[in-house]
Design a protein around this nucleic acid. Sequence first.
DNA 1: ACAGTTTCCCGTAAATGC
DNA 2: TGCATTTACGGGAAACTG
Lengths: 393, 393
Amino acid sequence: ERQPCMPMHPDRPLVIKTGVQFTNKVRLLVKFPELNYQLKIKVCIDKESGDVAAIRGSRKFNILGTNTKVMNMEESNNGSLSAEFKHLVRPMHLLLAGWNGSLFLILFMSNCIDIDLILQTHSLPVVVISNICQMPNAWASILWYNMLTNHPKNVNFFTKPPVGTWDQVAEVLSWQFSSTTKRGLTIEQLTTLAEKLLGPCVNYSGCQITWAKFCKNMAGKGFSFWVWLDNIIDLVKKYILALWNEGYIMGFISKERERAILSPKPPGTFLLRFSESSKEGGITFTWVEKDINGKTQIQSVEPYTKQQLNSMSFAEIIMGYKIMDATNILVSPLVYLFPEIPKEDAFGKYCRPEAVPEPDVGGDPMNSELLFSFSFFLCSDAYMNRKHDALPL
Amino acid sequence: ERQPCMPMHPDRPLVIKTGVQFTNKVRLLVKFPELNYQLKIKVCIDKESGDVAAIRGSRKFNILGTNTKVMNMEESNNGSLSAEFKHLVRPMHLLLAGWNGSLFLILFMSNCIDIDLILQTHSLPVVVISNICQMPNAWASILWYNMLTNHPKNVNFFTKPPVGTWDQVAEVLSWQFSSTTKRGLTIEQLTTLAEKLLGPCVNYSGCQITWAKFCKNMAGKGFSFWVWLDNIIDLVKKYILALWNEGYIMGFISKERERAILSPKPPGTFLLRFSESSKEGGITFTWVEKDINGKTQIQSVEPYTKQQLNSMSFAEIIMGYKIMDATNILVSPLVYLFPEIPKEDAFGKYCRPEAVPEPDVGGDPMNSELLFSFSFFLCSDAYMNRKHDALPL
DNA sequence: ACAGTTTCCCGTAAATGC
DNA sequence: TGCATTTACGGGAAACTG
């Protein structure tokens, strides 16, 4: 049977794209020998509560493919029953009421109605998207939900989304980096982000952040804080992963603080920072130089975009960057990566034969506990990865 | 009702991609007033002959969407009957036996069996592809078929594909340029192509070219003559259309002839030519210069690819190209476009504000006659454009 | 093993709906 | 009218298959 190719976002469970396959395995954690070979599981997707009653009158979503399966013995797992649903494609019309209300449940029910417990379970709330461009917002919803509630099926969560504290948000943001790269966010980086969300403040701990602050357009900008940050995460993963993993990218630093830490440094000292104005994610460098009068100047280039990084690696750009000096000679203004790493030491090894980025980054993107929900004795791995990702339960 | 967006290849009828919509209109050219409002047309796709008998036992292709339509009065067209089939999506399994045998027919049949003529028609043979990367080969099949036969439905044409003469092939090749740009191929360009196909020869007229020569991998190369040329056509259309339309691109010229015509010219004379080694389509320039000893040298750069032309237009590349001269000063080796057009006159206007290519190129890619087939009184526009292209019949 | 063919699905652009 | 959302489909890459 055909295996789908690796999707771009295997690390973002609980988001389903219409027309894209996903799989889901249901296991029976308790053995009922008399039920072997006759337990059927039906799957459907709905906003309802999970009661069997709600299944009638079900509407809006079509789950394509077989939606009923007979559970069978699992070889690997001490003989417990399981059923794996594949090909749950789901393409057609749905009535999403905007992002806020668009949480759904995937329901699993058994045909076992002759014993007096109803075997059923469901996923955590999922978000359905129709185009990959909706992934950032969808993932933001998943993050906010799991950050702020342990409720297993509150599909109306976003009708009045709770506020989070900066401490919670900070943990989630750092985790978004650490789960897909080898490095999370430092206190300094997080403080810069806090200032971006909340304005200047002595201590951000305990400050409240609304869903709107997190995911609605920032004042005067055409994009939200999260979309901006998510594009930076994407930039890091695809273009500058090695440099990020090495810790060479300060990334999030305010212009004021940048000036403060660079000014005392010798000319040629530079740091790498993300663009604040670009929605698409950009990275630039800022360096110290002395002007003709010997006055210290802080300079930087226009941020590099993903397009530009396609044709040359950022390490090569840094190593090769030259400007015209006062005597009309081309010189590199970049000498020491802040605080004082010679740029050759930091970036030389990523230049020569074509800086090969390391695409293998491990890490579970979401605390496993959050992703499972139990109801009676049925268990669904709500971690709805595509088929390549065998989930050890 | 939704209109699909403009496909990339509206100029390549008779090629159908699985999963992509196409439309087809059937008209009744003779009026039978008593038949109005009760004439139904059924469509199907098959390798068979077009006999009604062949419809039973039809298999392999699913035409999705409504495959039966009632013909209705056409407002614009003096009250004749017509039926337009939209959404003839066709996605699933088929049994193609390789490119050679993969011609199919689209059959249209009416329900009118109470009068003793059977109203039916069919398309010219079509090629079904499953990925756009198969388009070049598919289009080559269509070209070869229509170049060499007038048979309306010889689906077995490629079981023993006839040879063509160079004269026929030359006409088709030139037409591939003239139908999508404002300029066909000159005798000189065609002669270069003939030499590539047939080797050195005094007079190519009457020489025979096999299907294999045209469409199977060239000796020692991983691609066919046609794939190479088609990628050049694509390069021209997408990246250097204006320059091509102006006639600035000599393009096809052998290295020997290039040397012969450039050598007598003053240093700085250059011409533009396509890469012979790149499957993907590349363009380069070759110029005359004098070496330190005053000896005439012919120089050229590595061909520019589509990737590189994405970030800078070819005109800008030409205008900005500089090399280090003997005294270590950057100079442009390009002065006169062959024979003696100052490069500023030719390319200056395509540089400044971002060379805006003119995407509007008219021209019917294929002689209309070839594209229609008639059977009794039904007529199908086998020119299966997507919906944007209203076909004046 | 391999090459021809199909499937998968992202990402841009266009169309649609609200 | 504008914005949110969906559809269309090219294109790169993986998977499949004879």
